[in-house]
Design a protein around this nucleic acid. Structure first.
Lengths: 204, 204
DNA sequence: CAAAAATGAATGAATACGCATTCATAAGAC
DNA sequence: GTCTTATGAATGCGTATTCATTCATTTTTG
């Protein structure tokens, strides 16, 4: 097997194994087996176990940021932008459950065991939201009293926690699209300067 | 040292150490040293390392549930109930930063390495929110179209993510009370049947 | 165009080490 | 003097990482 990209193969295997067992319980040999590669081969592509996790973060979140920025750029209404962000985030979690689990669980506690690692990619992702809020405030669509720093976290947290539990629990009384719609509606109507009766952002 | 309650002492030490290092990087000897107790003593009170974590969850979340239910029972307006929940949750995270870190990080990934453990206490806590929504819907204060199952997660997620990052980052452009107020306002105005112009839930 | 030599990617058994858990022993209570 | 509680050094296991070895491929030579 000469042509296969071992780096990506190992990253993908790591996503699967970390999702199943968590970073600490995952063994290098598990990842190697999943990637159909020898244990030692992994060390030709990564310095150590942490390095796999960090590379995984950087690469995967990088892709996500590119995608969502591209989608949002096409839109000009800040309220619709929020809707798009919500839908994209939730669909992503649905389509890539394993990646979702790794990002949601391991990403957060990574700064606990990797002191020096500052996750700039993650910050960049969440800052997409605060940029939208800022724009909305300048255009007078969103209340000026809103703190974008609070809003971005609240909005992201709402999406993330909802999708996290949606992915975990097997019983689904609602779809991911419904949830995304409900959340962006709650937030949008909540932050509009005008009364919700005025103009509808969502369709009938 | 006869009078000191070793069980609680160990739990408290574990909160400190787990908060600092995370569950896996924390050593039993760290906890023992923090609790001013010998390594072996810990095994007189807990079966193993996991058992410390589980006991910690059960006991601490148990206390929190009691507190918040007591506060909420005093209120009858569902909108105010949400506000109280938000404020209580955020203040708790501020007052007990270490406990906050452990609950937010370790609680979530606990089901990854402890297969059999179902965290009923946590579910009970979040269900306090869905109960409020349900009441609000029956009274006609909240939109009937809301899915309480989505709302409770979104609301909890918003609070939790905001407080999580507030606790982590040293630079605070807003207080925890402001954040709680902003979040419950966003959610409340967003879910009211009447226009936000009608009646104000929050003061001037 | 073969045959020989060099290369380096891949392997996986061996190593080394960290740390949860145990248990023989000591200290304290009554 | 016995029973309870506490100690911490010793044990043993699990697994991250290393590295001597194996080939498939490429390059050199005549």
């Amino acid at each position: 097997m000469r042509t296969s990209d071992k780096h990506s193969k190992i990253i993908e295997a790591a996503i699967t194994v970390f999702a199943r067992k968590g970073f600490f319980s995952a063994r290098i040999s598990d990842i190697a087996k999943e990637a159909q590669v020898a244990d030692g081969t992994i060390y030709l592509y990564f310095n150590n176990k942490y390095d796999i996790l960090i590379s995984l973060f950087e690469e995967e979140i990088g892709k996500i940021i590119l995608e969502v920025k591209l989608l949002i750029e096409k839109e000009s209404d800040p309220r619709k932008m929020l809707q798009i962000f919500a839908l994209h985030h939730m669909q992503l979690m649905e389509e890539q459950k394993e990646l979702a689990e790794v990002l949601q669980m391991e990403l957060r506690q990574s700064n606990k065991f990797m002191r020096e690692y500052r996750n700039t990619k993650f910050i960049e992702y969440v800052d997409v939201v605060s940029a939208i809020i800022h724009k909305g405030q300048e255009e007078g669509v969103f209340r000026k009293s809103l703190l974008p720093g609070v809003f971005k976290r609240a909005f992201f947290g709402a999406l993330d926690e909802t999708s996290r539990l949606w992915v975990l629990s097997p019983d689904h009384s609602y779809t991911i699209d419904e949830a995304a719609r409900q959340i962006s509606d709650i937030f949008t109507f909540g932050i509009m300067t005008a009364s919700p009766e005025g103009e509808k952002v969502t369709g009938p």
